[in-house]
């Protein structure tokens, strides 16, 4: 005798069915589920951020060892300052916190983009084409042509002439191969999710319900 599905499984199964009901048509059960999803997700944000970031990285260091961590009061206050945007008239003071927050992360992003994306990717595109064997043609040459034609396609600063237009056209073909491949992969990803859900419904809910192991 297999154990009957517990209440948690029932809740999850019913919510899954409610969400899938949208495929037949839009209906109140789906709307209920969608709103519940939004609410629970936001609540999840609150729970994880509070317990996993704010408590261990801010509150505990301040309360347990203030002398070593006194300066953490500043990011705490900057964080609260962000919420001043909701106070009419003095909302502008939140700009200090927002400015620091955005500029820091964009500064980090700058280093990542140049150091981790532009340089290695350009390095990979500049390959020796001295030997004309099949590997060079099908890998290195095709690759180099692809990268540079796509870059020319994306170069909007100057109006394209007859030559660059042709090269850009080749670029679009490479992009189409990539988008087609991405479509194939995306199908795979979305279907994987559905497999996960039906797997749950069938193996964890229906089978125990009808007594199949």
């Amino acid at each position: 005798m297999t154990p009957m599905p517990d209440i948690g499984t029932w809740v999850a199964a019913l919510l899954t069915l409610f969400a899938l009901s949208f495929l037949y048509k839009d209906n109140p059960l789906f709307r209920f589920t969608e709103s519940m999803f939004a609410g629970v997700s936001l609540g999840y944000y609150v729970g994880t951020t509070l317990n996993q970031t704010l408590v261990p990285n801010l509150i505990k260091p301040l309360t347990h060892d203030f002398n070593q961590n006194w300066d953490l009061l500043v990011p705490g206050l900057l964080g609260l300052l962000l919420y001043m945007r909701y106070v009419p008239k003095t909302g502008w003071v939140a700009r200090y916190a927002l400015g620091i927050y955005v500029a820091y992360y964009i500064g980090l992003d700058f280093t990542r983009r140049i150091h981790g994306e532009v340089l290695p990717q350009l390095g990979r595109a500049i390959v020796p084409l001295s030997k004309l064997d099949s590997h060079t043609i099908f890998y290195s040459l095709v690759f180099a042509v692809g990268v540079f034609s796509v870059l020319i396609y994306f170069f909007f600063s100057k109006e394209q002439d007859a030559v660059t237009r042709r090269i850009a056209r080749v670029g679009t073909w490479f992009l189409m191969v990539s988008f087609g491949a991405a479509f194939g992969f995306t199908v795979m990803g979305r279907v994987a999710l559905l497999i996960g859900r039906l797997n749950f419904l069938i193996l964890d809910w229906i089978y125990p319900l009808i007594g199949i192991r």
């Binding site: 980090l108 983009r113 995306t186």
Partner: peptide, 22 residues
């Protein structure tokens, strides 16, 4: 990959979703 590996040298293996893999 583009920040941690590039700046601290730690090797990276990635297991992306199919949507991200290309």
């Amino acid at each position: 990959i583009t920040q941690a590996h590039q700046q601290s040298g730690v090797p990276v293996i990635v297991g992306p979703t199919a949507v991200g893999a290309p």
